[in-house]
Amino acid sequence: MNSSMKKTVLALALTSATLIASAPSYAEVTANASVTSNYIWRGLTQTTNDAAVQGGIDYADESGFYVGTWVSNVNYGADDVYSYEHDMYFGFSGESGDITYDVGYLYYNYDSEANFDFAEVYGSVGYGGLSATLSLLAHTEADEGEGRDYGFAQASYISVDYGMPVLNGAELGLHVGYHQGDFAEDFNGVPDGYADWGVSIAKDGFSFAVTGTDLDDTGADAYDNDSIKFSVGYGVDFEL
């Protein structure tokens, strides 16, 4: 998911995981809207490689407190039945010298078609363009299967991101992450923990990204998560 945890144009882990920003100088309410050719989350498609329309609203206070909501269409099956993802989150971000930090809570809400609501707590620290983020499973409505453990912190996602300006005002983003735990495996439909990576270029609201994972063929042709994916998107932010 910027300073208020809203997702970016491509909803990439390499940007959405970068929760770092200094506290705003005054309270503000902002909104965002975007379209993307493929909603990628932690290296995996959330739309069976189809397009997504996304948007959200954020409130950020000068104290560093923020709260927001974000929504996107998703598709977790091969039968073209579309669902939605509705995220709600709050947290606190700030800085101490050259170090930035962000901690918060994020709830992922889905309709009955997906039926896998869950929440995470997250923390992130950064220095310059470099940041590291840890997200831990907080709770879920999903029922545990036999021998599975969906308890607190029994699933985690850790990532490292780096962003830097390049030619003509564009920004290059680099990302690596690792998702593991019984819940992560069951939610993502993968047989084990996995690593993901991404490279993105963004300028003036336009984004292009290349992402991939270390997964072997999972047998789900609609997801194709063992292949390198290319995504393009466009997004806008505006004050309310």
Rank of each mutant, 00 (worst) to 15 (best):
N2T: 07
N2L: 05
K7S: 12
L10R: 07
A13F: 10
L19P: 03
L19R: 11
S22G: 04
N32W: 12
N32Q: 15
A33S: 09
S34K: 09
V35Y: 08
T36P: 04
T36S: 13
R42T: 02
T45V: 05
T45N: 07
Q46F: 03
G56R: 08
D58Q: 11
Y59N: 08
A60Y: 07
A60W: 04
S63W: 02
Y66P: 02
Y76A: 08
D79N: 10
M88R: 05
F90L: 15
D98S: 14
D98A: 14
V103Q: 13
L106M: 07
A114R: 05
F116W: 06
F116G: 06
Y122E: 06
Y127M: 10
Y127I: 12
L130A: 11
S131K: 15
A138N: 15
T140N: 00
T140M: 02
D143A: 15
G145L: 08
E146M: 06
E146N: 14
E146C: 01
R148P: 04
D149K: 08
Y150D: 02
A153L: 13
A155Y: 05
I158Q: 13
V160K: 09
Y162E: 06
G163N: 12
G163L: 04
G163S: 07
M164K: 05
L167Y: 10
A170Q: 01
L172R: 09
L174N: 13
H175P: 08
Y178W: 14
Q180T: 11
G181F: 15
G189L: 02
V190A: 00
P191Y: 13
D192M: 03
G193Q: 12
Y194K: 03
D196Y: 04
D196G: 00
W197M: 01
G198P: 05
A202Q: 08
F206K: 07
S207T: 09
V210N: 06
V210F: 12
T211S: 12
G212Q: 05
T213Y: 01
L215I: 00
D216R: 04
T218S: 04
G219L: 07
Y223H: 03
N225L: 03
D226T: 11
K229W: 04
S231V: 13
S231I: 09
Y234T: 10
D237C: 02
